[in-house]
Amino acid sequence: MDQRISLVTLVVTDLTETRRFYLDGLGWESFVDVPGDVLMFQVGPHLVLSLWDEAAALEEIGPVTRGGTPPALLAHNVGSPDDVDAVLRDARRAGAPTIGDAVQREWGGYSGYFTDPDGFLWEVAYAPGPVGDLVVP
Score class of each variant (00 low, 15 high):
Ile5Cys: 12
Trp107Lys: 06
Thr13Leu: 12
Gly95Thr: 01
Pro117Cys: 11
Pro45Cys: 03
Asp133Gln: 14
Asp101Lys: 14
Leu47Asp: 01
Gly62Val: 08
Thr115Asn: 15
Leu51Asn: 05
Asp118Gly: 04
Ile5Arg: 00
Val131Asn: 06
Ala86Cys: 00
Gln104Phe: 10
Leu51Ile: 07
Pro70Glu: 09
Asp83Arg: 05
Asp33Ala: 15
Ala57Lys: 02
Ala91Glu: 01
Gly79Ser: 13
Gly108Glu: 03
Thr115Glu: 10
Ala55Asn: 11
Ala94Asn: 03
Ile61Trp: 02
Ala91Ile: 02
Val136Arg: 03
Gly119Thr: 06
Leu73Phe: 04
Val124Gly: 15
Pro137His: 06
Phe114Ser: 12
Trp122Lys: 03
Pro35Gly: 07
Tyr110Asp: 03
Ile61Lys: 00
Gly67Ile: 00
Arg93Glu: 08
Pro128Trp: 05
Val78Asn: 02
Ser6Phe: 04
Val34Glu: 11
Val78Arg: 06
Glu123Phe: 10
Leu49Asn: 08
Glu59Gln: 06
Val135Phe: 14
Val43His: 04
Met1Val: 11
Ser6Ala: 13
Met40Trp: 11
Gly68Asp: 03
Asp24Cys: 02
Phe120His: 15
Leu73Tyr: 04
Thr18Phe: 13
Arg93Val: 05
Glu29Met: 10
Asp37Trp: 09
Gly27Phe: 15
Glu17Asp: 05
Val136Asp: 08
Asp85Ile: 09
Ser6Ile: 05
Phe41Pro: 04
Gly62Trp: 01
Ala102Gln: 06
Gly67Arg: 01
Glu59Asp: 06
Ala96Leu: 07
Arg20Glu: 12
Leu88Thr: 08
Asp53Met: 06
Thr65Gly: 00
Val84Cys: 12
Pro35Val: 07
Gly27Asp: 15
Pro71Val: 04
Ala72Met: 13
Phe21Arg: 02
Pro70Gly: 06
Arg105His: 06
Ala86Trp: 00
Pro63Asn: 01
Ser80Trp: 04
Leu23Gly: 00
Arg105Ala: 10
Ser50Thr: 14
Leu26Thr: 02
Val131Phe: 13
Asp53Gly: 10
Ala57Phe: 15
Phe120Arg: 08
Pro117Ala: 06
Thr16Asn: 14
Val38His: 01
Glu17Trp: 01
Glu29Ile: 12
Gly44Asp: 08
Phe120Asp: 01
Asp37Lys: 13
Arg20Asn: 04
Gly129Asp: 07
Leu134Met: 13
Val84Lys: 09
Val78Glu: 10
Glu17Tyr: 00
Gly67Val: 03
Pro117Asp: 05
Thr98Phe: 12
Val103Asp: 01
Ala91Tyr: 14
Leu10Gly: 07
Val11Ala: 04
